[in-house]
Amino acid sequence: MDKFTTLTGIAAPLPLINVDTDMIIPKQFLKTIKRSGLGVNLFDEMRYDSDGNEVEDFVLNKPAHRDAKILVSGDNFGCGSSREHAPWAIKDFGISCVIAPSFADIFFNNCFKNGILPIALPQEDVDKLMDDAERGSNAIITVDLESQTITGPDGGEIHFEVDAFKKHCLLNGLDDIGLTLEKVASIDVFEEKAAQARPWV
């Protein structure tokens, strides 16, 4: 997995609540058997018209935000389907950090498996970053995972919380399966005991 240490770049504002994973990557793009190549279809139905032309006023089509590395959005980001195609598409587009007041559970977990840092912040902090994001390349934002800080264009710092284990994995680009297999003895022991206690499983 890609490491996430620090990220400096343009943020794109998407001031909508309940951005669902159908919006992030519509179902017609779930037919792939690969993880890559989904960035071009990120937010497909908002980003393109029915003829496949770019919708000019959609944020990621605007010159100021085409190269965004950070997305700032509203409450309950990533709700709906468990499709990991959503973080795959976000990452493939070039965005590695999503900032919102809250996230849906499955999407939030999926981000960490793909080198994306989802940051939940109080609404007033998100509002401030949303204003910064509106200014495109005139408002570069830096996210530092080690120190858990976001630095805005005016130099102001916002602290954010992140689970210590998830932070460790992201900073070091660790593979979950490899980590778990180090504890395979515990799984063996559990499986044996469970087979005695609940043989019907």
Partner: peptide
């Protein structure tokens, strides 16, 4: 019972466990 992403599908296939809080 709950939904998981594809990375977690692979994790469960390989280890029969999930990393959870």
């Amino acid at each position: 019972a709950h939904g998981i992403g594809t990375s977690e599908v692979e994790h469960v296939l390989a280890t029969q466990t999930l990393i959870q809080k």
